[in-house]
């Protein structure tokens, strides 16, 4: 990696002040340092955002819980209350990398991490996402790539936490210039749907401060299927959350991961569940709605039956 300067920001304002055009925020470093070692990123200044007061707090609440962007994934995984109130988030956190990674990696860094497409991650390959002329995965090796996308890049969102947080209806507080904006998880990734260069909607200098998770009187679940039993990225992941009224779904959110550049949601699938009891046939129909219009490539067609099974499994898990 290239030499750089380093500074620790002690406030949100100063973090943003330090962030010139050739600077990067540094959280746990698991993503950024790896990209710097591959010369995919070569910032002149790293602005450590881990010491900003308040951003490493877990704040319980009756209406919602607030997690600071600098809370580590291990803390999310190990918090017994989070496990009880937001099982989807607990399960998604427990599947992130290994304990060594979770002990250091942060919520904010997990949400803002870059694509893991193997062409993108190769220092000598200049694909569309690096402002090159073409997507190499489309005609090349695409077994880990998208079934759905709104742009020519077919890399997928890889953040486990984003999938669970989308199902839980979380709100992300982002410092943008002088103001703090409140984004849904869909907002946080919207740009990656349309724009091949984007990994998320954050502009340079935008700082994720906190994530608010509403406490809903329902249940949630997360599951993923990977090639290895542990310490592996999801081939497909699924999170779901529902509020019930007398055993029937009042409101539900189902989200698929690793099949699109964004946590993938289909309103019609959520609507289908309303007013009904979840059983196997209903879960299968919800899966049909979610997977309608999937465009498999040469090597990733297996994701369709895999996603179908995972959607059913996750929805049935909500029934306990």
């Amino acid at each position: 990696m290239k030499a750089f300067q380093y500074v620790t920001a002690q406030s949100v304002d100063s973090a943003r002040d330090w962030l010139g055009p050739r600077a990067s925020y540094l959280a746990g470093g698991n993503d950024l340092l790896a990209r710097m070692k591959e010369y995919l990123a070569d910032p002149d200044l790293l602005v450590n955002v881990k010491s900003i007061p308040g951003l490493a707090d877990i704040e319980p609440g009756d209406g919602h819980w607030t997690l600071g962007a600098q809370v580590t994934i291990a803390r999310i995984e190990q918090d017994p209350q989070i496990r009880k109130l937001f099982p989807a988030l607990h399960e998604a956190a427990a599947e992130v990398g290994s304990l060594q990674i979770r002990n250091v990696a942060t919520l904010g860094g997990n949400l803002a991490q870059h694509s893991r497409c193997w062409y993108y991650r190769h220092r000598d390959v200049v694909c569309l996402k690096k402002k090159g002329p073409t997507c190499f995965a489309r005609l090349g090796e695409n077994k880990f790539h998208s079934l759905f996308t709104g742009n020519p890049c077919i890399s997928t969102v890889v953040s486990n936490l984003s999938i669970a947080l989308a199902a839980l209806g979380a709100v992300v507080l982002v410092q943008q210039g002088k103001q703090t904006v409140r984004w849904s998880i869909a907002d946080l990734y919207a740009k990656a749907w349309d724009n091949p260069i984007a990994h998320h909607s954050l502009a340079h200098g935008d700082l994720i401060l906190k994530v608010e998770i509403p406490v809903e009187p329902g249940r949630s679940a997360y599951g993923q299927i990977s090639e290895k039993g542990a310490f592996d990225w999801a081939l497909v992941s699924c999170a779901a959350a529902a509020v019930f009224d007398d055993g029937r779904v009042k409101q539900a959110r189902i989200v698929l991961g690793a099949v699109a550049p964004v946590p993938y949601q289909v309103e019609a699938a959520n609507d289908l569940l309303k007013g009904k009891k979840i059983d196997e046939p209903l879960a299968a129909r919800a899966a049909d709605r979610l997977l309608a219009g999937a465009e498999p490539l040469e090597h990733n067609g297996y994701k369709i039956p895999m996603a179908r099974a995972l959607i059913q499994r996750t929805l049935l898990k909500l029934m306990g």
Binding site: F4, Q5, D17, G20
Partner: peptide, 19 residues
């Protein structure tokens, strides 16, 4: 190695009060 001269200057002009 980075061009520490030019970026160093940029950084200084950026920083001000905290520095």
């Amino acid at each position: 190695m980075m061009d520490s001269k030019s970026s160093g200057n940029d950084l200084l002009s950026l920083t001000r009060r905290n520095f």
